[in-house]
Simulated scan of single mutants.
Amino acid sequence: MAGDLYPDHGVTGTENRQYNREQRAGKHEADAALYKSHQCEQTPHPGSWRRHDQRTQGPLVAGYGIYTQGQEILLTFSFCSSLVSGYVITYFPLRGRSETIRLILSDQGAKWTEEEVQFTDWFTANCEHKKQAVFGQLPKFKDGDFVLYQSNSILRYLGRKYGIAGGSNQESALIDMVNDGVEDLRMKLVRVLFYEPEKGTEKYEADLPDQFSAFERILSQNSNGTRFVVGDQISYADYNLLDILHVHLALFPACLASFPLLTAFSDRISSRPKLMEYLKSEARKNRPIVPKK
């Protein structure tokens, strides 16, 4: 709707002049209280009328100021982070390839709903979810009317939406590189757990130091391992690395014993307040790493 009323969340000079602040002020006072209660920014700026964009802990908020009772009220035409987002994750009753999506959304203060697809339904000939899936795979991610498949595409989409995809072309490229490295490790684990279980996990576990050493080295090259994998703010690759570390720690509890930076990274990112709340939730605790038998 915002795009129809205000293309590209912009406003022309003609629309500025046509906008009658006195007639609109009373109508929007109640809205202002609502937005304030949802922690949308209010900036004192008497008499102003301007476009105002901000990055919050949630989605990009595009708003328009109106002078009302001595202050500028931020009226938004897109969702504030604490309002219902319209996100839907469609996936199996697992952590799997949807868990990093959940980590991002929870840490960014967004809400979402889960649409679970049972394995027994997925493998039937008439499964609608499978028919609709672009590449015959899940997860499926909905942002309002927008639908996206492929887990890493979803991560990159959320990375751009929440401003956690790098502050420059170089940072974005490095974040992609780390995320691809996590994907390589995830695929090796998936092969062992789901496609070659008869071979056992002993060799895989023995080879883990070689796998983790690359990530330990990457961390050491950014603020001596005290921050994130790239730059000075969190990225979608940090969440993906955190998830794969959580999975390995659950399966191989001593796997990080020789990796102090990865251990500290896992503890540090997991302790972010909103993320920690999700990690302690019953939904997270009840969601298995591998299918329940």
Rank of each mutant, 00 (worst) to 15 (best):
F141L: 08
A125M: 12
L103E: 04
T100Q: 06
Q108N: 10
K111S: 14
D107S: 09
T90S: 08
R97L: 15
P139W: 02
L155H: 01
R97N: 04
R95G: 00
N152I: 04
F135W: 10
G96F: 03
C127A: 12
K131L: 00
L158H: 03
R97M: 14
L148A: 05
Y157P: 14
S151V: 01
L94T: 03
L105Y: 11
E99T: 02
E99Y: 04
L94E: 01
L138N: 06
R102W: 08
Q118F: 15
F146A: 02
T90I: 04
V117T: 01
I104T: 02
V134A: 14
G144I: 08
W122T: 11
N126C: 13
F92N: 03
F123C: 10
Y87I: 03
S98I: 02
V117C: 11
S151A: 11
V88R: 10
K161L: 07
G109S: 11
S106R: 12
N152Y: 09
P93W: 14
F146M: 02
Q132K: 14
E115L: 11
Q137W: 15
S85F: 08
G163C: 03
F123K: 12
R95S: 00
R160W: 07
K140L: 12
E115I: 02
G163M: 05
L148H: 04
H129I: 01
R102I: 07
L105P: 04
D107W: 08
W112N: 06
K161I: 00
T100S: 06
L105F: 15
Q132S: 14
S85Q: 13
S153C: 13
L148R: 02
I154M: 10
V117D: 02
R95D: 03
F92P: 04
F135L: 13
K130N: 13
L105H: 08
C127V: 13
I101C: 05
Y149S: 09
P139F: 03
Q150A: 04
P93G: 08
G109I: 00
H129T: 06
L103T: 04
E115K: 15
N126I: 14
G136N: 13
S106K: 10
G144E: 09
I154D: 02
Q108F: 05
V147P: 07
I101L: 03
L103C: 09
V134H: 10
G96Y: 01
Y157T: 13
F146N: 11
Y87R: 09
S106V: 05
R102P: 07
V88H: 09
F146I: 04
T120R: 15
R97Y: 03
R160E: 11
V117R: 05
D121P: 08
T113E: 15
L105G: 07
I89Q: 00
L148G: 09
T90H: 03
P139E: 01
G163K: 05
Q118N: 12
C127T: 12
I154W: 12
